[in-house]
Simulated assay, not measured.
Amino acid sequence: MYLIMSMMFLIMTILMILMMMAFLISKKTFKDREKSSPFECGFDPKNSARLPFSIHFFLIALIFLIFDVEITLILPFIQSLKLTKIYMITFNLTLFIIILILGLYHEWNQGALNWSF
């Protein structure tokens, strides 16, 4: 029991010393205050959190999520080439990519990819 208590004391002492050294050595500047702010995307942390934001930002984030999920759906097609006949996978993959291209074309026509403000 004495050995366990002495080891715990030693570990806690070493941890406290390391934490104090990290606190003293770390460089803190005025710019770091903005990094620790809870808000992102250009919001001012001093204002209300219920301010409206640009719908353009939301659309771009949504398009990013769609194409991010698309990559995770295309990757298993490559693995399934080893298991099934190649013409079935090629047809499915082609159909999937055509649907994605049509969706991208629709977003482009709707103006969701227009970067002008």
Rank of each mutant, 00 (worst) to 15 (best):
G42Q: 11
W115M: 13
I97G: 03
K82H: 05
K46I: 11
L24M: 14
I98Y: 00
L95Q: 03
D44F: 04
L10H: 03
F117P: 03
T94S: 15
F43H: 13
F53M: 14
P52D: 04
L113N: 01
A49N: 06
F117G: 08
P52H: 00
L95Y: 07
L113H: 04
K46R: 14
N47V: 12
L15T: 08
L93P: 02
S54F: 00
F53S: 12
L104F: 09
S116G: 03
E107P: 05
M5T: 08
F43R: 15
M1Q: 09
D68I: 08
F57L: 15
Q79A: 15
T72A: 05
M20A: 15
I71P: 01
L81V: 01
K85H: 13
M1Y: 06
S6K: 09
L51M: 07
H56P: 00
F117W: 08
L51R: 14
T90A: 13
F53Q: 07
F23C: 06
W108V: 01
I99P: 05
F77Y: 08
T90L: 05
I78S: 06
T29A: 04
F96R: 05
F91L: 14
T94F: 11
K27E: 13
F57G: 15
I66F: 07
H56T: 09
A61R: 10
Y87E: 12
A22S: 01
M19G: 01
E40L: 13
V69E: 07
L10S: 13
I99S: 06
F9K: 02
G42R: 05
S37L: 00
S36Y: 06
S26P: 02
I99M: 02
F53D: 11
I86V: 12
M1P: 04
K31D: 10
N47D: 15
F39H: 10
I98L: 13
A112G: 07
M5A: 14
S80W: 08
I60H: 13
T13W: 08
G42D: 05
P76Q: 01
L104Q: 04
S26T: 10
I4L: 14
M19N: 11
A112N: 06
N47I: 11
F58E: 14
Y105K: 02
I71C: 07
I101W: 02
I60K: 11
I101K: 01
M8G: 10
I11Y: 05
Q110N: 00
V69M: 08
L18H: 06
E70D: 07
Y87R: 09
L65V: 04
F64A: 09
E107C: 10
I25W: 08
T13V: 03
G42I: 07
F53C: 12
I60T: 09
K46W: 04
L24I: 12
I25N: 03
N92A: 11
L65C: 10
L59P: 00
L24N: 13
C41N: 15
M8V: 12
L10G: 00
L18N: 10
S80V: 08
A112K: 00
I4K: 14
Y2L: 13
L10M: 13
L83M: 03
I55S: 13
K27M: 02
T72V: 10
I14D: 00
K35I: 03
I55F: 15
L3N: 14
W108P: 02
